[in-house]
Design a protein around this nucleic acid. Structure first.
Lengths: 194, 194
DNA sequence: GTCATTTTTTTAAATGACCATTTAAAAATT
DNA sequence: AATTTTTAAATGGTCATTTAAAAAAATGAC
């Protein structure tokens, strides 16, 4: 038997509702009732499934991290060269699935609140370390030792900065365009090496 | 005569207290009472001087923008070449006065909440436009037309990303080091031009 | 300079909302 | 009948803002 399927369904529904509600109202002011309404449920049911508002937020952030990890692994599977794999990291960050107004918005808000919530901070650090490690690994074959860290940090901060800017825009984002620009930036930086 | 000096003094004290309190507790949860305590005053006096919590936050953000503007103008005064002026913009962003844990922290939080408060959004857009304009003006003499916008966006997003990362760190920041790295990144990008 | 008066500044306490979480019971499912 | 899921309503607390009064500072006539 499938075990309690209902539990998984509600988890998914409520996390999606959280993403939408936080995007609409802001992390600072969104209420349990608003999130519940977004999912067509009651505030009490959120506590039934997640225990507390904080745990719901943690689960939501974990979901976002999982999506990013998946997007990265998908693209890694087909990438052959270090250059391809570097681009895979960039493409993953700006994939159609992730680079949306809703997700950029909520991502920045979790980010801003990470220093004040142990659980969010932990997740944020894990994620950043993973991206850093990927960049370092691929740049090893592409860039001389003395420039590698400068280039890595530049690229990583650039990606973060693009998300930050995207979170401010209310016009729909264009992931394909973002990928193109990211590649241009990366190639611009790599070119000064060869 | 100096007009009501007391008013100016309290404004300054309360804005400084806001910066400290928001850094310590987080924009999402900081209370009027906490901010007041930080300034050795009462919550009621904040409303006496600012009218509301929202207006206090707006005034605080406006103060941060003024500091950035000043830092930029100071450095512009002595810069002679386009390259010097480009570096002046970078140095201003990472000046000793601005690139501190407290200010990076509060800056990111205002940023994250800008989409949900008309007044913050306005200020944020004005600031971003100003930085964009400066970058464009100086890059005109340094970079070919077809690459200029890519380079500008890369640099600007890089700066934002560095602030974002800095806001997560609890170790004291090193503005001099940040300036050095920013210059390296900028030169790396410019080098691929010549 | 001093003292009464007016104005400005300050805050303790009251007010009125709002909200996360719990509880207890109902509804749905097994 | 037993178990799981759902929610209306109760609970307990927090907080921004207002109010009313006190304290402090400024004013100005003597």
């Amino acid at each position: 038997m499938g075990r309690t399927r209902i539990r998984d369904i509600r988890h998914e529904e409520l996390i999606n509702a959280t993403i939408t509600a936080v995007h609409k109202r802001g992390y600072a002011v969104v209420t349990m009732a608003e999130i519940a309404a977004e999912a067509g449920a009651s505030a009490a049911s959120i506590n039934y499934y997640f225990g507390s508002k904080e745990k719901l937020m943690e689960a939501t952030m974990r979901r976002l991290l999982t999506l990013l990890k998946q997007a990265m692994l998908e693209r890694y599977a087909t990438a052959k060269t270090p250059h391809d794999r570097l681009m895979a990291v960039l493409d993953a960050n700006f994939s159609d699935r992730l680079f949306t107004n809703e997700q950029c918005s909520i991502w920045i808000q979790f980010w801003a609140n990470a220093p004040y919530a142990e659980s969010l901070q932990r997740l944020h650090r894990i994620n950043r370390s993973r991206v850093t490690a990927h960049f370092r690994a691929e740049l090893r074959a592409l860039v001389a030792d003395d420039r590698r860290e400068t280039l890595r940090e530049a690229l990583q901060c650039y990606m973060d900065g693009v998300w930050l800017e995207a979170a401010q825009s209310d016009a729909p984002l264009d992931p394909a365009q973002a990928r193109k620009e990211a590649r241009e930036v990366a190639d611009l930086m790599l070119k000064s090496e060869s």
